[in-house]
Nucleic acid binder design. Sequence first.
DNA 1: CTGTTAGCGCATTCAC
DNA 2: GTGAATGCGCTAACAG
Lengths: 338, 338
Amino acid sequence: MVTLKDLARITGYSVTTVSRALNGYDDVNKETRDIILAAAEKLEYTPNINAQSLVTKRSKTIGFLVSDLKRESAKDNFTFEVLCGISEFVTEAGYEMILLSTSSSKQKNKTFRQIVSERNLEGIIIQGLKKEDPYLQEAIKGSVPTVLVDIPIENETTGYVTSNQHDSVKKAIKYLARLGHRNIAYMNGHKHAYVSEIRYQSYKEGLSEAGLEVDENLVCYGDYEEEKAYRASLDFLLSNPEVTAFFCASDIMALGVLKAAKELKLDVPKDLSIIGFDNILLTQYTSPTLSTIGQKPFELGKRGTELLLEIIQNSSTQRHIIIQNELILRESTAQPGG
Amino acid sequence: MVTLKDLARITGYSVTTVSRALNGYDDVNKETRDIILAAAEKLEYTPNINAQSLVTKRSKTIGFLVSDLKRESAKDNFTFEVLCGISEFVTEAGYEMILLSTSSSKQKNKTFRQIVSERNLEGIIIQGLKKEDPYLQEAIKGSVPTVLVDIPIENETTGYVTSNQHDSVKKAIKYLARLGHRNIAYMNGHKHAYVSEIRYQSYKEGLSEAGLEVDENLVCYGDYEEEKAYRASLDFLLSNPEVTAFFCASDIMALGVLKAAKELKLDVPKDLSIIGFDNILLTQYTSPTLSTIGQKPFELGKRGTELLLEIIQNSSTQRHIIIQNELILRESTAQPGG
DNA sequence: CTGTTAGCGCATTCAC
DNA sequence: GTGAATGCGCTAACAG
């Protein structure tokens, strides 16, 4: 390992001068700088970021905190795409990202503050935590720069990045209404997620704006799981034959509804239109293919990181970023009756 | 931020004693230790790992180096599942993981050594790099503990974790042969991946062991892409009507073959049996559902990390770990003719 | 058992 | 322009 001291010894200058030359200070003789830079290059000198951060207090590291990063969550490439987006931007900015999972941190009885101070994290991006998660509360209250994915809360050191779920859900509902659907059901996820609320609220508003009545009985709960959505919709469709369209808070649940429809010999989209949310790869392969609302998780990660670094550098003019979703129409939507 | 110095000041002991008490040395008076531990708890003291690593030379950090972590790779949840496996085990061991992408590192002209020494990484797990990638070569030659995923190379500081691809591919081929297939084609991926070679080799051996001749003309190249596999197999199936089974080096390519078969009005599995590799989620949703070889990427990540930490601690008895794959039979395989 | 001393690699005063 | 001195938070000899 080559250190500043080595470079100092070899070039004959002091550690101080070497440090300044390498960090681009302009009070260094050009010749001196060239000599030092050449030596650094030759020896493949790399600054020790840990040592740097010890004195500068800037670790050039951020954390990405997600809820249980277990086997199952791997199915959900939303998190992974966000991760990719973060990774891309973070590296561009000369930072590095550490992956943190709440489950394992809790297991180790760490507080949010500890997670952060252990590694001197400059900021944290949070995704997928339940509303009532203590880490989330700590993060919001604390003074560590934080960016939340899909949780619309902001303050001095907290920002968020999300998509225009409100508009896109309303758009989907109104689209169904325009096709002639009068009884549009909603398959909601569990109540621990902010997005469930937002989407449900938007569903209701969409109905109202389309001149349709909101009927609480047309709401099912599938917990963002295919199997649960399948079972819930099986019963539901049997007892609510007037329903001709189903809007689902996630594609995974839409798959469950699709399965139930098939089992009940309902033709999709002739007897039942279905719209999902997420645009997962599978939606292009089902039969019929699934209409859905497409998010851009990669962008969420990338822009979220951008925002986080701005908050860290105190250079941000805003505390939130909204990414546009896209209503993707495929084969699972049509007029009622065909 | 609470430091050792703070604890020393408050408890009246020296920094050294506080440090020793906290690190569980047994040459500390029990009473003293209790006082110190109590103070640490009360003030929520958290050791600064960066400072620790500066002196101990152990950063408690490993890197996960993957090839281009771009938008597209997100489709491939193999990487993500490996990542989840790493994350789980790494945290258990008190380590943290940093995500590194070759594309961005190259862009910054960093050598492998620099990537490692910048952050004092204790070890690295590598996945998805092409055979000829310079980072891979550096890693293997270098003295930094390294674990390769699916690249069977080992030496003093390098180990690998992979699945029994050899056996499982042979098993699949022999299964097809037992069903009565005599002309079994192979859809290979690009040649930059070790796994392509291994699977191809195993395919040939499987044929031989089943008493079938190896015909180089029955090999196609789909580059691990659906579209390319689709086009390659379209031509191929037209000009090779005697082929009744297709083994594909990845499920994604199997999807391409399935699409081509449908376009050619070939019934799967009646006219053409298909077996893929990976057991991606999609294989359960296609029609017909796809037979495939299931890997356990989560296990790969987890066991790989385990191995890496052993190499780091110099406690490993072996340098490689093999995880068992599973031949999963679904609807896309049958006897020729039905 | 405990404290003093030294130093990890680096950036930053402050003199010269 | 340059260097000596200081300290970031911590561990590791070495004395006592």
